[in-house]
Design a protein around this nucleic acid. Structure first.
Length: 713
DNA sequence: GCGATCAGTT
DNA sequence: CACAACTGATCGC
């Protein structure tokens, strides 16, 4: 919860995300996003009175935030005082004191924050230096590098102070599964359930807050099922959301709410009142998005936890994890940093102890040969068909890539998008260098690459950055997410797909002849401070420690923390296996000590990803292996699922051959794996041919440079 | 009666 | 072990 007082030291004439007390005298207001704890005082009579007596006082925010705010009539009085600023468009603002006439100019730039629809960070530039107020944010590792306007030329701007969202700035929140992982985990669970019969419905037990929209969009796009919500008028001008939500209760996915919805649910009733359809009772499961985090040494990410017979928790976070925060801050490397939030149980001093070392003054002292991070992170550009970047997060940055000149981005920008429509993606495998560190953060495919180069991980900041210069790996480009026109800079919908017939680097590297391999999606810690070792093919993540989730306790606080040794291993009576885990399963069956698994990417586009039980690919030993393990693990409380056809992975694994309605989990597994990125080709770029790729891999394996003649700029 | 604040719930 | 909202009680204007 933000404890930021509203003002930054450098520019006290503006108030940000606080509108009470001293802030009543601000010359201008800024709202980073529409969550109540950032709107304190915004509808207070005192401020309302002030507006009435002034033509000059303005509230600056993103277009989406403006839209959301004005949808509520309680904020209507702001109507003539709100100025929507386009994201990533520097704007000059004159701060005039209405009584003295005193004036100060400041330039402000909104940067996408990835927290909720419309959420932004504010970058202020003026006489007192450059200041970044992050608001609440979630940016994956490496995403700061993609924020064009955080840079000047090829370097990060000289930033005096960062006012930082430190919600999870505590080592115990070291790792939070990526958005993609979480999304995919939820998707597969929902898919498996809803595809059983039309009477199998899912209730997404979401809080009343913005931020879940990209989940809704993703589910709707992938499954072709709109999400029932209580209200949608706030999205009336955001077609990319509006299309995926509905007020028609006759749908299989619900995110509606009711004051006593838990009670309803216990009575097999949805919050909207639905309990049966056509006389047939509904089979309802609830999925409660919750933040799950993992300690430093944990690599496995179980994004779904079964907490009861028909209740699940799914990993979902609006905020950056500890390692993401550190990555972000160390990239920015400001002179000063000020935490906006004190994580529970932590003192400001403690938080500062963590943050200070990432700031410049400290680094200067400690590292005489300091090199600007901006430069270090710079990458040899892309000849790669790095598609369009513009999605950059307007919502969700999907891939970590150092900043790339805008010009180029424009060139490669698809003419129209709509994050939502991008169903046809391809993975472009290119020969290009990329920061290995950045890659780590993302999905399976990237992780595969990562394995190869970071087999001896111990990555600390420096190493990482240097490696990023020398490592040459295939790179994935990413799909445009929110479009520039979409006006929706907080949401994204990634769908993915990959082309299956290119040789896979991981496969090549490992000389692994697996017919079926599974992709490893773990986003294991790889941050600058990981300090830990992620060995490439470590044994550390055997089946047992990553595959099982305790569920017998339906305690409400089901968060999984894995810092200690009391990890999963001790919780064998588990229930659910997530898609990622399935991969681990598969792999561990025939690859001793391998933590990275390789899965042939299934050709499955988002478009054809409708539940389809007829599609099934050969599973080979993979399957029986998974089957065995699954049998062993079969949970005691899964009878219902068995009867229902099951939403539980192990059940599905067990029953897969005899239940025609059972969603094809193997298929889905692949689908997930392959769908972490959806990447349209950059115009003009070519996907390397298999033989060429093979050749590249060979060189890579030999440590040769594959950057060919292209300029690295 | 409204709003601010706090504690407790979800 | 969170977050963000909501509820209800209390207090003050």
């Amino acid at each position: 919860m933000s404890r930021f007082g509203g003002r930054v030291r450098e520019y006290p004439a503006v108030s940000i995300d606080r509108f009470d007390r001293d802030n009543l005298r601000a010359r201008a207001y800024f709202l980073s996003h529409c969550h109540k704890d950032h709107m304190k005082g915004l509808r207070a009579p005192a401020l309302k009175r002030r507006l009435e007596g002034s033509l000059k006082v303005k509230l600056y925010c993103s277009p989406v935030t403006k839209e959301l705010l004005l949808t509520s009539r309680k904020y209507k009085f702001w109507e003539n005082h709100i100025v929507a600023l386009e994201v990533e468009t520097p704007t000059q603002i004159s701060l005039v004191d209405e009584t003295s006439g005193e004036k100060e100019d400041i330039e402000v730039t909104l940067l996408p924050a990835g927290h909720c629809p419309g959420s932004v960070m504010f970058l202020f530039e003026g006489e007192n230096g450059t200041v970044l107020y992050t608001g609440d944010f979630r940016l994956a590792k490496g995403e700061a590098a993609r924020l064009e306007l955080l840079h000047s030329g090829t370097r990060v701007k000289d930033i005096q102070s960062v006012y930082l969202d430190t919600t999870f700035c505590d080592p115990k929140f070291y790792h939070i599964p990526s958005r993609e992982e979480c999304l995919n985990g939820i998707l597969e669970l929902v898919r498996s359930w809803t595809s059983l019969t039309r009477y199998h419905v899912v209730w997404l037990n979401c809080k009343a807050a913005y931020g879940y929209e990209y989940l809704f969009i993703n589910l709707s796009e992938e499954l072709g099922i709109k999400v029932h919500v209580n209200k949608l008028d706030m999205f009336r001008n955001m077609p990319e959301i509006l299309y995926h939500v509905t007020t028609d209760r006759h749908t299989q996915i619900h995110a509606c709410r009711h004051p006593r919805d838990d009670e309803y649910f216990r009575g097999n009733r949805l919050p909207c009142g639905m309990t049966c359809q056509n006389g047939t009772p509904l089979h309802i499961i609830s999925i409660k998005p919750s933040t799950m985090w993992f300690g430093e040494r944990i690599k496995k990410t179980n994004v779904i936890v079964r907490t009861g017979e028909s209740t699940y928790r799914a990993c979902f976070s609006f905020h950056s994890s500890y390692s993401e925060i550190k990555d972000f801050l160390s990239y920015i490397c400001p002179v000063n940093v000020y935490p906006n939030v004190l994580p529970v149980g932590r003192t400001e001093d403690k938080v500062m102890e963590i943050l200070k070392p990432l700031c410049r003054s400290y680094r200067r002292n400690m590292e005489p040969r300091y090199k600007p991070l901006g430069t270090l992170k710079r990458v040899h550009k892309r000849d790669l068909s790095d598609t369009d970047e513009d999605d950059l997060f307007d919502s969700e940055l999907t891939s970590a890539r150092p900043k790339i000149p805008k010009q180029q981005r424009e060139e490669s920008r698809p003419s129209s998008t709509g994050q939502s429509e991008n169903a046809e993606g391809n993975i472009n495998v290119m020969n290009v260098t990329e920061s290995s560190k950045a890659i780590t953060t993302y999905t399976s495919l990237t992780v595969d690459f990562m394995d190869c180069e970071e087999s001896n991980d111990d990555d600390d900041d420096e190493d990482d950055e240097e490696e990023s210069e020398k490592n040459t790996v295939p790179i994935l480009s990413c799909e445009p997410a929110a479009t520039s026109t979409s006006n929706f800079n907080g949401v994204t919908s990634d769908q993915q797909e990959s082309s299956a017939d290119v040789p896979r680097w991981d496969a090549f590297f490992k000389c692994n002849n697996l017919e079926e391999s599974s992709e490893n999606e773990d986003n294991f810690p790889s941050s600058a401070d990981a300090g830990g070792s992620q060995s490439l093919f470590s044994d550390s993540d055997g089946v047992s420690d990553s595959t099982h989730i305790s569920s017998q306790n339906s305690s409400q606080s089901t968060h999984i923390s894995e810092q200690g040794s009391q990890g999963w291993d001790s919780q064998m009576d588990t229930v659910l296996i997530t898609s990622q885990e399935r991969s681990a399963f598969d792999f561990s069956c025939f690859s001793k000590g391998g933590s990275r698994t390789v899965v042939p990417v299934l050709q499955e586009t988002a478009k054809d990803s409708q539940p389809d039980t007829s599609r099934r690919k050969p599973l080979g030993q993979n399957r029986s292996c998974a089957h065995d393990v699954a049998c062993d693990l079969k949970s005691k409380d899964s009878e219902k699922d068995a009867e229902a056809g099951t939403a539980h992975d192990q059940d599905v694994l067990v029953e897969i051959s005899d239940n025609s309605r059972t969603p094809d989990l193997e298929l889905r597994r692949d689908s997930q794996s392959s769908s972490d990125f959806e990447i349209p080709l950059t115009p003009g770029a070519e996907v390397p041919q298999p033989d060429k790729l093979h050749c590249l891999y060979k060189k890579l394996a030999a440590g040769e440079n594959i950057l060919n003649e292209r300029k690295l700029s």
